[in-house]
Design a protein around this nucleic acid. Sequence first.
DNA 1: GTCTATACGACGATAGAC
DNA 2: GTCTATCGTCGTATAGAC
Lengths: 189, 189
Amino acid sequence: MSVRPVSISDRNLLASLGAVVSRFGVEGASLARLSQASGLKKASLYHRFPGGKDEIVDAIVDDTEARFAKAMSSAYVEGDPAARAEALAAGIGEYYAQGADSCLIIALSVSGDEIREGAARCVTGWSSALENVALDAGLTPDQARITAIDAVAAIEGALVISATTGDTGPFERALASLPRRLTTVPESA
Amino acid sequence: MSVRPVSISDRNLLASLGAVVSRFGVEGASLARLSQASGLKKASLYHRFPGGKDEIVDAIVDDTEARFAKAMSSAYVEGDPAARAEALAAGIGEYYAQGADSCLIIALSVSGDEIREGAARCVTGWSSALENVALDAGLTPDQARITAIDAVAAIEGALVISATTGDTGPFERALASLPRRLTTVPESA
DNA sequence: GTCTATACGACGATAGAC
DNA sequence: GTCTATCGTCGTATAGAC
């Protein structure tokens, strides 16, 4: 979704910047912290991102959307839904370093309304990917939609727990249960 | 857990201050915002909380712990575990206004290490309450511990979703499934 | 393209009147 | 107990040398 072309150098830059925002939130990600994490001085950051902090956050969100969409690409290929669900779980686990990494969505959710929209885009994109697999697995549209957003919620909640207590157990279990959730008809409702 | 006695006036004050921190995070909760939300000028806030913003945040966390413990008190009474689990779900739903209110734990989780400790205390206290009901329902200690923390994660994740997209469906479903989760032996593991 | 130096505003905090 | 006025500091942003 990014208009500006992203060079290899920018990739590493955005990764380090994104880690700071994910960890401390948008308002907690001061230019001093962003500078230290990226190894670039503040003025250099303004050279890369003339729009300042707003542009930095926008670029991080765009980059996150793109990288996550790539990690979820197996949702849209053809093949066994169960195997694709397994691939999605693996991709999510890798993306969040098995629960050790902070989640940008959560950080964006603790911010002003404008910034939250970026989080909403990430959530809906993610949920749509899971929903697509659930549909192919035979769930009804309503079942697939609910199952997908609830699966996203389960993983996000697990990331809240790992961020607060350091316990990655909920994350591991949420991922382990993902394939079954996406490919079996829910009991009730 | 609060040492300082809390008057009625302080209750309303802490509620309005807590809402700002929950919504915008610790670093996003500027004294200007806290002042506007509470109706007290900055200097008046310093009269109530001589320790400044740090003391405000500490007071909010202590107050949240106390109020939430009260909402979860039905976990420790005697009686039918299923009925107590229903009461817990109802208490959680009321506490978070059916998913419309922001969660302080999430806001604290996007902060520095010291502040995260407060979030960890809230999480463990909450999880312990659910765990106690699960134990009384006949789950093994390991099952009860895992079931409880996973239930907390499910609700926290639902609150992330409602905060980002406004969809309170995951929250409602997480609450609806809570009694069954706490009182039935998990299939696997 | 990266740096040092600096301007400027917002934020946390305090002094003192009422 | 609440207010207005004010003080440093930090954060955002810019200018200009290299």
